[in-house]
Structure formats: C-alpha cells, structure tokens
Design a protein around this nucleic acid. Structure first.
Length: 561
RNA sequence: UGGGGUGUGGCCAAGUUGGUUAAGGCACGGGAUUUUGAUUCCCGCAUUCCCAGGUUCGAAUCCUGGCACCCCAGCCA
C-alpha cells in the first residue's frame, strides 16, 4: 500500500470510522472497496474516491478491495476493466489479491433473489417498462400496485426460474422487490431487481440472460466481501434505505453500512461519463488519453504525477457540500511536486536566432548547468554554447513597455549559465518587417553568468546553441473549456470548448541532452513550465513534449505580455 | 409541507459535548532574497459563520421560522 499521507485531514467519514473502532462496531475491522463500473475510463473524480477508500483502509490498518460493478453487459467492456486497473495501480494503490467482480456473485445473487421470493418480498411483474413507469406515480403522487404484485410464491418461483432459463424474450418480465408503492422515496416503490437482457457479458459470456440491478447487487456484494464502510457519492443517499432493506430482509454474512460524500467538480472541465464520451466520440479530443482530458489516462499523458493527484485529493477534503474546486488547486499540486523532482533544462519554443558577433566562429564550449539549483545533489550537466544561439522571440522587444527587463536594443541581459550579452543590432525581413535575427556582443569575463566587476543585469534568458540544438515538437495545452462551468454557461456545453486548448509548436530548439529523454520523463523547461515526453508519440532520439503546466508568471499577470 | 441532502472569506475547508482574538490550503495584495519575472521567505486577507428571531453571563455551535442551492420518478450505475 502506498500513499499513506501522514497528515490525514479530519473529515466526517474518518470520524465515523474512529467511532466505530472505538465502539467495536465491525469487530474492529475497516474494509472498504472501490467499485467502478467498467463502462468508461477513470477520471480525476474517481481519483478522489480511490484515494478516500484506499487511504482510509491504509490509515486504519484495514483493507480495500477493487470490485467491478459489472451488472450491465450492454455498456461494459474488458477494455475498461483493464484501463481501470492500470489507472488505480498508477495512482499508487494495491488491492493485492482482492480483485472482485459483481459478476462473480451472480449465482449467489440469484439465490438471494429466490430467498426474497420465498419470503414474499419479491415478485415477478409482467408489465412493460412503460406501464411500470406509469404506475410508479410521480414525485408528489404515490404509485399504484401492479396487478401482478400478489402472485403466489410458487408462481413467482416458477416464473423467475423460467426467466433464468431463457423462456421469455427481453423485457417480458422483471423481478421486483415488494416494498411500498406509496413510499415517499420513489426508490422504495417496488424497485426492479432483475431484468431479462440477452447480452454477452464480458466475463460470464452467455451464461446468463437475466442480470441483477445495481441496488440489489451492491449492498449484497459488500456483505459478501465483508465490507464495513461502503462509501459512495451523494446521489446514492436516496438509495440507502433500499441498500438497508435488502440487508435487513436477507440473511447475509455481514452487515456493511453505506456513507455518502460529495463528488468532485472541477473548474473549466466536465466530469460526467456522458460528457467525456461525447468529447471522445465527437472527435473534440484525440481519445480518452488526450492530454486535455480529465481522465487519469489523459492526466498521466499530460505529465501529472500520481503524487500530485494524491496531494490534490488530500487538499480538497471530503464533505457533503456540493462544491467546485478551483483549477488552480490542481495546478498547484503538480507544480509543487514537479518543482521538487523535475530536472531543469533549457528549451526555446518560439526561436529567434542571435548571432554573437565577437564570439569565435566555429567554437563550441561546454558550460556547466545545475540540474536543480535548489537540490545540488541532483548534479549538473554540460550545455553547449556557440556563436549562434536561439532565444525566445518574446524575450526581445524593440520598443518595450516599462517593467520589461529582457533583451532590448542596447541593453545587457544574462544568458543563463553562460554570458552577459548586449543587443547591438536587429535584422529584419525587408518585406514583412519581421525580426529574423538579433546581433549581440558578449562579455567573455562573465562566463558562467556573473560579472567580475559586480555589475547587475535585470534579466536572465534561457537559450539553446544553434549548432547543437535538437529540433522537436512541443505541445502547449491549456484548459479544455473557456468558461468555468460549461453546463451552466448557456447554450450547448460543447460550444464553450477552448479553441486554443492545444497548440502544437514545431521547430522548437531544445538543448541536446533532451535527445535521450525517455518517453514519459518530466522536466522543467526553465522559465516556461513543466513538460513531459509524450508516451505515445516520442521516438528514440526524437521526443515530443507535452506541457503539463506553466510556471507561475507574475510578469504575465501584470499584463506584461 | 413529495422525499433526501447542503449552506463558514473569491474557491475549498477545520471547527460538532455552546466559552479566549473563527485553523489550514488555493487564489489574491504587499515586501525580502534570487543566474528561472520560478522557488523560498516574511506580512496582509471573515468583529463574522445563508437570513430573521429566540435561549444563555456567553452560540458558527442549542431552539423556532424563513430563504437559497443540489439530488430522486432507468428494465443505468
């Protein structure tokens, strides 16, 4: 088990567990589970649940199972059960040998259903979906009983057996719990617990043609696994009476309790499965692992670390409040982690050539550069320097606003780890007026970046020597939507997609050490941000980089850019 | 009066057996340090806890009444 954050913040669920432990409620055990349905990829919202469930188990000396809630074969697929396991593992959690599937319990679940029928607590209804809906009543009016509600136990047993045997077409009958059609909580109005569905299940194949519903399955699966605290999201709060009803009316091996917490909402993105699927299928992103997606696969490809995600989940807390987390909190978590572990390196995204007139042509010298100035133990590397280098186009201005302390005609700046240079000329394309080259002079006495006479310089620029530069593609990602809440912004939520969420820069100039960057490795491109070698598109010797996050930029904030 | 939930600073969130000046994080503002306008480091940032009454020597914490927002009528989970 990894990630037992020692500074576990207090929350209402921890308090419940502490009380249970004190009272010896579940025999002093803590056993949770993360129960995804394998019908989509995991996203950052699931990470909150994963960290909560596995984290609680770890902190209280308990266990956490991974259980797939695979009761709807029509929407589920092995592709998802694989990606989900992969993502949970990546996040840093281990379910050891406790990988379960609700489908493993189909036989037992079936027996529980039979037990319910025997006790007169369930019946086969032969109304169609439309009729059942009508009789269910409305939120303010009670429902009406089905004409089949009082069939005999024998008839119900017979019908249910024949449902299982495949004697009826899909939809012909359903098994319903016999509770209360007038219950103010509509979930209790004789909920359907089994339906006939001839679909090939990704695990049980064609063995079954009847499948149990979530409400019936979940609590019983929890009981079978001896789960103590079954933690789910708020929308299931109304289902808790049902959860309890099944456990109260059946003889189960244990008595789990359900608790609900608020799901995560994040600024400038969408987290509903339906929306995520729409983004993928509509071609608005390149796939589930598009670096702009809030999926764990996307976030991972973007360069986020598991540590950062866990830290984020720790910071946002666990409550029942309906909230929306500021995107900056997530960014802060990655910056903090990457700031500590990412080696520094230099890369010029939008290059403009600089010719240092007084530097010997043909000369190439190696200058030492720290891999992490705050962590000398991470060592240093040699960076080549030459007469022709590239600097960032936006680091030069002919007519700068006040406060701009980068390169300007006649002004001296420092090239990081190299020399002071002064701009002595600007070469432009006569036709367009665009700057094509800058002419500079360097001071040989400032090698390494310090002036022996103690003179100071306001700006320090990153740079890459032209003869040694590695050409590469770098992708700059930004928030997927241009409004904080795409659903509430009016109009079609897709209309709020940020057209600039992915900018591809080709011909970027990187320091040569990056040629060896392994796919997935993360760096800080000095003064620019954190970048990660794309795991899918990088080739040996030819990495492609994704921007994970920018560095904070107080100059940009003042409107300097 | 359908049922269930939630309301503490811009965004999160401690605080819950009523008792000093209402934690902390993010964001924001100011300052120091700085060969990344980054990092780090200080300092500031709710006389007030959805509102209105009430109980009390004392309430974010108790009572009453409002208001706002979220979820529920799948043979989805």
């Amino acid at each position: 088990m990894t990630a037992p954050e020692q500074t576990a913040a207090p929350n209402f669920i921890r308090r419940i567990i502490e009380d249970d432990l004190r009272a010896g409620t579940h025999g002093g055990r803590v056993h949770t589970r993360f129960p995804p349905e394998p019908n989509g990829y995991l996203h950052i919202g699931h990470a909150k649940s994963i960290c909560l469930n596995f984290g609680l188990a770890a902190d209280f000396g308990g266990l956490c199972n991974l259980r797939f809630d695979d009761t709807n074969p029509e929407t589920e697929d092995v592709e998802y059960v694989e990606s989900i396991q992969n993502d949970v593992r990546w996040l840093g959690f281990d379910w050891q040998e406790r990988l379960f599937f609700a489908s493993d319990y189909f036989e037992r679940l079936h027996d529980y259903a039979v037990e319910l029928i025997r006790r007169g607590k369930a019946y086969v209804d032969s109304l169609n979906a439309e009729e059942i809906r009508t009789l269910r009543g409305s939120l303010t009016e009670p429902g009406k009983e089905s004409p089949h509600r009082n069939r005999s136990v024998e008839e119900n047993l017979d019908l249910f057996a024949r449902m299982r045997a495949g004697e009826f077409p899909d939809g012909a009958h359903v098994l319903r719990a016999r509770i209360d059609m007038a219950a103010p909580n509509v979930n209790l109005r004789d909920p359907v617990i089994y339906r006939i569905r001839r679909a090939t299940h990704h695990r049980t194949g064609d063995k079954w043609c009847i499948y149990p519903m979530y409400d019936f399955t979940h609590g019983l699966s929890d009981a079978i696994e001896h789960i103590t605290h079954s933690i789910c999201t708020l929308e299931f709060e109304d289902h808790r009476p049902l959860y309890d009803w099944f456990l109260d009316n059946l003889t189960t091996p244990s008595r789990p309790r359900q608790y609900e917490f608020a799901r995560l909402n994040l600024d400038y993105t969408v987290l509903s499965k339906r929306r995520l699927i729409a983004l993928v299928e509509g071609g608005h992103v390149t796939g589930w692992d598009d670096p702009r997606m809030p999926t764990l696969a996307g976030i991972r490809r973007r360069g986020y670390t598991p540590e950062a995600i866990r830290d984020f989940c720790e910071r946002i807390g666990v409550t029942k409040n309906d909230t929306c987390i500021d995107f900056a909190v997530l960014e802060n978590s990655v910056r903090e982690h990457l700031g500590h572990v990412a080696p520094r390196v230099m890369a010029v995204l939008d290059p403009v050539k600089v010719v240092i007139e007084n530097y010997p042509a043909g000369q190439l010298e190696q200058l030492p550069a720290a891999n992490h100035p705050q962590r000398p133990e991470l060592g240093s590397r040699a960076v080549p320097f030459a007469r022709e280098i590239f600097i960032e186009r936006e680091d030069f201005m002919e007519d700068p606003p006040k406060g701009f302390h980068r390169l300007v005609p006649g002004r001296e700046v420092r090239l990081r780890y190299a020399y002071f240079i002064k701009c002595i000329g600007v070469v432009k394309d006569p036709a367009s007026g665009a700057i094509t080259e800058l002419r500079c002079a360097y001071d040989p006495a400032t090698r390494g970046g310090d002036a022996p006479d103690g003179r100071k310089v306001k700006g320090t620029l990153h740079w890459v020597a032209a003869p040694a530069a590695l050409d590469a593609e770098v992708r700059l990602y930004d928030r997927l939507f241009r409004v904080p809440d795409p659903d509430a912004a009016g109009g079609d939520w897709l209309g709020h997609l940020n057209p600039e969420s992915a900018k591809v820069f080709t011909g970027c100039k990187l320091e040569p050490a990056l040629r060896a960057a392994a796919a997935g490795s993360r760096y800080q491109f000095e003064r620019l941000g954190y970048f990660c070698a794309d795991a899918a598109d990088s080739r040996p010797g030819a990495p492609v980089f994704n921007r994970t996050a920018t560095l904070k930029d107080s100059w940009a904030k003042t409107g300097g850019r």
